[in-house]
Simulated assay, not measured.
Amino acid sequence: MRRGKEMGIESKITSKGQTTIPIEVRDYLKIGAGDRIGYEFVKGKVVLVPKNRSALDFAGVLFEPDRAPVSVETMNEAIGEVISDRYEHSHDRD
């Protein structure tokens, strides 16, 4: 692994399509052996997304001091609507 001028950190891909994720990236993402990562396409780039996160890692991430509390039922309803919308949109491409 070495630092590239434009990309920051880079690594080679083997003939089998494998690469080693540099230690700086693993440390930044807090991932290690056995963890899973996802790949997302974002505006012409591929983003690595750690998939082994504990619910505690997200504690407070949605906190807004002036927002009124929301019930679990309301949250479940909102999640259901988003899932339904995504399902419908995924079939629009067919």
Rank of each mutant, 00 (worst) to 15 (best):
M1C: 11
R2N: 04
R2V: 01
R3I: 03
R3K: 03
R3C: 01
K5C: 05
K5E: 00
E6A: 06
E6G: 01
G8A: 00
I9R: 00
I9P: 00
E10P: 03
S11Q: 05
S11I: 09
K12R: 05
I13R: 00
T14C: 00
S15W: 05
S15A: 07
G17D: 03
Q18A: 07
Q18L: 10
Q18Y: 06
Q18P: 00
T19C: 04
T20A: 08
I21D: 02
I21C: 02
I23A: 05
E24T: 11
E24D: 12
E24I: 08
V25S: 00
V25W: 01
V25G: 00
R26C: 15
R26Y: 09
D27E: 12
K30D: 10
I31P: 00
I31W: 00
G32C: 14
G32L: 09
A33M: 09
G34S: 10
G34L: 05
D35R: 11
I37Q: 09
I37R: 09
I37F: 06
Y39M: 14
Y39S: 12
Y39N: 14
F41V: 09
K43V: 14
K43A: 01
K43P: 04
G44K: 00
V46A: 00
V47K: 07
V49M: 11
V49Q: 06
K51S: 14
K51D: 02
N52V: 00
N52S: 13
N52P: 01
N52R: 04
R53A: 02
S54P: 02
S54C: 02
L56F: 12
G60W: 11
L62I: 14
F63M: 06
E64Q: 10
E64V: 15
E64T: 12
P65V: 09
D66W: 15
D66P: 02
D66A: 07
D66N: 07
R67E: 14
A68P: 08
P69E: 02
S71M: 06
S71V: 15
S71T: 13
S71H: 03
V72Q: 04
E73I: 13
T74R: 05
M75R: 11
M75P: 03
N76K: 10
E77P: 00
A78V: 12
I79L: 13
G80S: 12
E81M: 07
V82D: 13
I83F: 15
I83R: 15
I83T: 13
S84K: 15
S84W: 09
D85K: 11
R86M: 09
R86V: 12
R86E: 15
R86I: 11
Y87C: 14
E88W: 01
H89L: 14
H89R: 13
H91N: 11
H91A: 14
H91I: 11
H91G: 02
H91E: 08
D92E: 15
R93D: 09
D94K: 03
D94R: 04
D94A: 11
